[in-house]
């Protein structure tokens, strides 16, 4: 069941658009914000509310890489793996993160604290390598910094 808060937020988006279906990406964002990820049950709930089929909602949800269709940890690390970060050796940061967290790209730590994902160019190439943890951007990242940085997220 969608919560009243979720319904209110979805209704607000629907009002700005010529038809209900157009709000589906916004609805998925709203649900993910509340629940952390988008489960099969969430897909069905959004579909019903917007008069769509679950398959249609899922086709949109699975297209966008920042709609999470698998459960993620409490914090999501997005490590930029695009070209400027490649030149500035993001690979070394990745190896260090693998060792510290004991996970690879696409995995979540056993304590559900972190999910590690690769991300396309974060748009701060003059300060590569770069990564984001949740909404926070970190640039000119060094291996030495990582412990301090991860400590901020419990």
């Amino acid at each position: 069941m969608l919560t009243q808060e979720e319904i209110n937020a979805i209704d607000h988006e629907v009002k700005l658009l010529p038809h209900k279906k157009a709000a589906v990406i916004e609805a998925l964002k709203i649900v993910q914000k509340e629940r952390g990820w988008v489960s099969d049950a969430s897909i069905s709930e959004v579909a019903e509310y917007l008069d769509m089929s679950p398959a249609e909602v899922d086709s949109v949800a699975t297209f966008y890489n920042l709609i999470f269709r698998k459960q993620v940890g409490r914090h999501v690390i997005l490590l930029c793996d695009s070209i400027s970060c490649y030149v500035m050796k993001y690979q070394e940061i990745y190896v260090a993160l693998q060792q510290k967290l004991q996970i690879q790209f696409g995995e979540t730590t056993t304590d559900q604290r972190f999910t590690l994902l690769p991300n396309a160019c974060l748009g701060c190439c003059d300060h590569a390598p770069a990564l984001m943890i949740d909404d926070d951007l970190y640039t000119d990242v060094t291996i030495e910094q990582l412990d301090e940085l991860l400590k901020k997220y419990s």
Partner: peptide, 22 residues
């Protein structure tokens, strides 16, 4: 947005704004 390079393509961006795959 919610990711995907394709959204920067003019007509794909329009589809994304309409709530569709980009």
């Amino acid at each position: 947005g919610v990711g995907r390079y394709m959204c920067g393509e003019e007509t794909a961006l329009l589809n994304a704004l309409e709530g569709k795959r980009a």
